[in-house]
Write a protein that binds this DNA or RNA. Structure first.
Lengths: 273, 273
DNA sequence: GCAATTGGTTCATTATTTGAGCTATTGGTT
DNA sequence: AACCAATAGCTCAAATAATGAACCAATTGC
């Protein structure tokens, strides 16, 4: 097994408890949420704070996401200016579909939203900015898994699959069954698996070597998901995904693409042979 | 001394080795740069990677800043939407001065650039995006120190002060001497202390409780720093800083998110009384 | 072919993290 | 005012996790 610092991982894990609905968290609360001892949580927070990854309000003592992220996000954008190109594509996709669209790439074991453009309609789906999308409960996640390397999928599916709604699939085998069809048609559709009353479509875009890079998706209120609209949305979506693939010099999918570092078939047989 | 996890701090410190000039680093190289053992560096990188803080190119094996930063930067911006307002102010400042301007806030023990607008002139100063500005060697840093809490200043000045150019002040006492004058006039000027041939002006902006939040600055090639231009630039700069200060007074939501825990004037006298 | 890189792994030694329990402070209730 | 229940933060012995020298295996340049 590949090594990894447990302490560092735990500390970084604290950051995942912050989200748009909960931008500020106190020490005891965070310790309770994360299951760590208060002293431990404090030590982590202090370390994170000294590097600007969290910030503490001097009055209320609560912690929130720090300014260092602005710095590194800038850095990443200048080195690999994706988000901007993605933004343009999303905008066009919204023009065509009139529904909220977003793009994501893999960050750890969930998808990180790297851009979002909202529908012009008043009744629209809104993603929380900076939200981490669960792989098994969203159209984006499923389409990603369907194109990801087998080992990555195995790793992920054996973890606990959170049930967000009655529709959320939590059985690994059941999820695997969808992959074939998704790869076949080039997109995935999900309905109410993450949020009730929301339908999502997602398609993958690929890197130069045919590996999946990320996903682009359209989300709309279930009430607007009439059949003929869906066809049009899917057409636009696939066009947008193709655009992202080629914009990066990517190749439209190899038979079984792999996700990042996870090779489909390593030279040696995997450990558990 | 306040506690903090040494391991976590070391791991996070690795990220500081990435910058615009060096967006990708290999394992051995990073181990050498950071002074850590290869095995240690690898464990840290693996932990960072699993959370999306770094990303590894599957071909070349080099590491670079990961996508998680895009996610958290979005999150921070929605909770504390600064960068956008700052951007507008910067743009106006560049309109008036025709010189590159930028704004920063404290992130750990350096200033994080949260926005930059470049001069329209062909010979202009360009900041590396996502650069961390050293507190002792830049106009922004000095003006920040001049308004920061005494304890914070003590902490910082007793660390090693890197010499970037012949002009870089590295003597703590010498640096302290400037603070009075800076507070007096409301801005700081530096010339060639970080980069040769660059002159910088910086002014502070404050939170609702009078603590310093961040700095706004103008940087120009030394050859253009004629006296009458300087006066105009300073006037514009102070106006811009004032705008940022007042703009934050009418912030919706609770007035959180200031430059860390350091009060300008603590109730008690600082430690070295 | 050889030499010098690289990324990644192993395992005994060592230093670090850990957490129950402590203090101090704040805010709300009677 | 006294009291209670939260909070943030600190201490120190016990347990655990980090560490690093030596070791592969694979490239790369000669």
């Amino acid at each position: 097994m590949s090594q990894s610092s447990a302490t560092v991982d735990k500390a970084l894990g604290l950051l995942d408890f912050f989200n748009a609905r909960r931008p500020s968290i106190g020490l005891s609360e965070l310790a309770r949420m994360s299951g760590h001892n208060k002293a431990t949580a404090l030590r982590f927070l202090t370390a994170l704070e000294s590097r600007g990854f969290v910030e503490q309000d001097p009055e209320s003592k609560v912690y929130h996401i720090g300014p260092a992220f602005l710095r590194f996000a800038q850095l990443r954008e200048t080195s690999f200016p994706w988000a901007l190109a993605v933004e343009a594509t999303l905008r066009q996709l919204v023009d065509e579909t009139e529904e909220t669209s977003h793009a994501a790439i893999l960050a750890g074991h969930a998808l990180a939203t790297i851009g979002q453009v909202e529908s012009p309609r008043s009744n629209r789906v809104i993603l929380e900015a900076g939200e981490a999308l669960p792989l098994h409960a969203t159209a984006s996640g499923l389409v990603f898994l369907a194109h990801a390397d087998a080992r990555f999928v195995d790793d992920f599916l054996q973890a606990n699959l959170v049930r967000y709604t009655d529709q959320t699939p939590t059985d690994a085998a059941e999820i695997r069954e969808k992959f074939g069809a998704i790869r076949e048609v080039g997109y995935s559709r999900s309905s109410g698996t993450y949020e009730d009353d929301v339908v999502g479509f997602a398609a993958p875009y690929f890197g130069p070597d045919g590996t999946i890079v990320g996903t682009i998706a359209v989300a709309l209120p279930k009430v607007r998901a009439a059949e003929e609209r869906e066809a049009a949305i899917i057409a636009s979506l696939l066009r947008a995904a193709h655009k992202l693939t080629t914009a990066r010099g990517g190749q439209p999918e190899r038979a079984t693409g792999d996700a990042g570092k996870y090779r489909t078939h390593p030279k040696e047989e995997p450990t558990d042979a």
